[in-house]
Write a protein that binds this DNA or RNA. Structure first.
Lengths: 158, 158
DNA sequence: TAAAATTGTTAGCCTAGGCTAAACTATTTG
DNA sequence: CAAATAGTTTAGCCTAGGCTAACAATTTTA
């Protein structure tokens, strides 16, 4: 079948680390990451909108743009997407609101974010770094790991 | 200046969690994540190519495709990019090789990946889950956090 | 060694998520 | 209350990273 005489599947002595995972499992790992990438920006926007509403009373495109560090045009386009996904409601030139689906997503996202952030802090990571890392990590942490992080926080925080 | 009378910058009582970070810092967090996204796929390919060479003796497009879970056309296109970036050398229809820049990247990437994976295992996360989480997390973990993870591994592994 | 099977490449399409520039709407202010 | 300013949207462009289909090259095998 193979056009090459391959070394056996068992790892050779060349490597220092683990063997390669089985092909199917390996592919599923990358697929999981690709899937996370599709949803994470959406979640970040929804989470930020929820935060802005909670902290500032409203969520405006200009605020989202400056906090996200992108142009207002980009935000405008994204809001249209969030609308189509049924996560926010908006009238032109007016402030945004989260739908109940949006609120749910914001709440879940925020809770996950907080666990990761507090876990990193409990581990001893500096606050600024912890915030940056948490922002990137939160979408890639499974429920299982999240539960373990939560237990760790309880154990290591007064 | 503002067209709305805004609540003060200090958070209102509505929220349960932390205050919003200052705008500049907030934007930098998201920018860091966006930047990581640009490089992480590249790193994943380079890391996988390095692993295939180490474990199988060669890295072929078909193997990369099946392990990444993408089409061969996608891999072919990506290899061209890696070439342009000076990370691999390739002749058509021949196996790939990493340049020394590619080897460096693979080595760094692999080391980081292993630390995150072993950290999750030391934390008590199931192996399959740990592999999936590590794949997603590795590109978002700062050097500071990585060092702390490494210390944690040393302390919690016999 | 010719045919079959596998592997690799190219062309062309699509979506997401950035951007700038220009037009439009709302609010504030002189 | 009109003009200036601030905020929002739209149009059009670009890149990355997927895909399929068609074709080319290589390797295996009958």
């Amino acid at each position: 079948m193979s056009q090459h005489t391959q070394p056996p599947e068992t790892p050779t002595v060349l490597d220092s680390g683990d063997a390669l995972p089985p092909i199917e499992q390996h592919a599923r790992q990358y697929e999981t990451v690709r899937f996370a990438h599709e949803t994470e920006l959406i979640e970040d926007y929804v989470e930020l909108i929820g935060d802005l509403i909670a902290h500032r009373g409203e969520a405006r495109a200009a605020d989202i743009a400056s906090r996200m560090g992108v142009s207002q045009a980009t935000v405008s386009k994204m809001i249209r997407r969030l609308n189509e996904l049924g996560l926010v409601t908006s009238q032109p030139y007016r402030s945004l609101f989260l739908t109940s689906a949006g609120k749910d997503m914001a709440q879940v996202s925020r809770a996950r974010h907080d666990i990761v952030l507090n876990f990193l802090r409990a581990l001893g990571v500096n606050d600024t770094t912890a915030r940056i890392d948490a922002e990137g990590m939160e979408h890639h942490v499974s429920d299982e790991t999240l539960a373990i992080m939560q237990a760790f926080i309880r154990k290591n925080t007064k």
